[in-house]
């Protein structure tokens, strides 16, 4: 499941996620990649151990009188959310994404954005945006530049970005000043999760005109 992943998350993203400081859209990419990659899961959990060490060292603040009894009463009311295992063998979308879509890839509501590419914008906090992209075999994702950070995680199929190949589980971390042109491989359609903290700027004329309408 995880042996073929060659493009991983960097330490800054894993640490920011461990510390709870990533915008929701980026956190969704991190949680999805970690679901598919044991290496990054181990790195993430080591950054969480830093949080544990800091918690242990932190100056204590005394709890209110009767707080233990209040907590026991809280426990008596049962768990806030049902505790259900979120594992499904053979799913295209890892659990964190299924939570947003409401099912696996067959439950995604796609909208065409031109050149055969389809997308589904996911509901996240507005400090960054996340969408699923469905790219036909051999098709290019329209040209775009960045004003911020863009993460692209492959869930099905593969794309090439320059000389690099990105397959299932691989994550492409692109930052400012990168002008890149990912092209889907021939074979099955490429499905990926893309998150950005700046609106994408498409350099092709038509897609740019469409931008305000499709929230590309």
């Amino acid at each position: 499941m995880t042996t073929t992943i060659r493009h991983h998350l960097n330490d800054a993203l894993l640490m920011a996620y461990a510390a709870g400081q990533l915008p929701e859209a980026f956190a969704l990419v991190v949680a999805s990649h970690v679901s598919l990659c044991d290496d990054c899961r181990a790195r993430l959990e080591s950054f969480e151990a830093v949080g544990g060490a800091l918690l242990e060292e932190t100056a204590t603040a005394p709890m209110g009188a009767g707080s233990l009894a209040a907590t026991m009463a809280l426990i008596g009311r049962g768990p806030k959310d049902p505790i259900v295992p979120r594992y499904r063998r053979g799913a295209v979308l890892p659990a964190p994404l299924r939570d947003y879509v409401g099912g696996d890839v067959d439950a995604v509501v796609w909208r065409p954005v031109g050149n055969g590419v389809r997308q589904a914008i996911l509901p996240t906090a507005r400090d960054a945006s996340a969408r699923l992209l469905h790219i036909p075999p051999g098709a290019a994702v329209p040209h775009h530049g960045h004003r911020g950070l863009e993460l692209t995680l492959v869930l099905q199929g593969a794309f090439r970005d320059g000389s690099e190949r990105f397959g299932r589980g691989d994550v492409d971390v692109a930052s400012e000043d990168v002008q890149h042109t990912p092209v889907a491989e021939t074979g099955e359609p490429c499905i990926c999760l893309a998150a950005t903290d700046a609106p994408l700027r498409f350099s092709g004329l038509l897609p740019r005109l469409a931008q305000p309408f499709f929230r590309i």
């Binding site: 709870g20 929701e24 956190a27 295992p85 979120r86 659990a95």
Partner: peptide, 11 residues
């Protein structure tokens, strides 16, 4: 008041 995406549990 944001959702917290969490990794899939290990099977």
């Amino acid at each position: 008041r944001a959702r917290r995406p969490e990794p899939e549990e290990l099977p």
